[in-house]
Amino acid sequence: MKPRPFAYRRATSVEEACSLLAGPVDARVIAGGQSLVPMMNLRLVSPALLVDIGGLAELQRVTLAGDALHVGALVRHRQLETDLLVARHVPLLASAVRHVAHQAVRNRGTLGGSLCHADPAAEFPACILVLEATLHIASSGSERTVAAGDFFRGMFATALEPGEMLTGVSIPLTAARDPAALHEMSRRHGDLALAGIVGRRGQGLQRWAAFGIEDRAVRLAHLETMFADKPQAGEAEMLAALALDLPSTAGAGTAGRAKLVIAAELARRCRDDIDRAGVAA
């Protein structure tokens, strides 16, 4: 379990990182290294060049920018867990961290790394889907934004093009203040989810997503409509909606069926939490 040979450069600016990424060799960003290094050791990925962005202070900040909270790509999980602005404005993210790994991993893992890694069972992709966040992407000489809903393209696959890197995420404050909840089931504490559900209820809108079930974090359109029509829907209705939202899981035998049953229960728990939070608010 040793990686194939690779070169290593530590970037001193976003611009330098982007130009290294745009170079002729197959280059990858390394942020916290918590997902990339194991994959390299297993020789599942073998970049020729690692571009370390760990020194880029400008990506490590959480700032209020107008009607959004901006979270830099290098903000560590531990920082999300303890940051006052996050706690105040996006409590969903702060509570999601409690399901992510253990302290040692949280000390190094970054929000950007988690989003770009796009593990189907990771919590943060589903969170930014229901928060309808915007991702900021830089490449040599240019910048663009992508809506969260367009970012996740499949297992470990995102909308990032070669030569691009994520610099941060903007979370609209209105969305972030809505009552929201996350529930997941994992076999051991801190493991990636066997199934997870995130929900948010805004003024006349429902935003729900599932993780750990399909090949990526997915929005649950049927569940959203169902909750809009029938806030107190029972298990059978939730199961029916989820089967439509998660077709490949619904067709995947008893293992898929088990995930749906669990997802329906998690959705109920989220809904009940949101109801309670709504009453309190």
Partner: peptide, 13 residues
């Protein structure tokens, strides 16, 4: 006794 096997035992699948 995994969750899946438990749910099957409980006749929930």
């Amino acid at each position: 006794m995994t969750p899946e096997r438990m749910l099957a035992a409980l006749n929930r699948l």
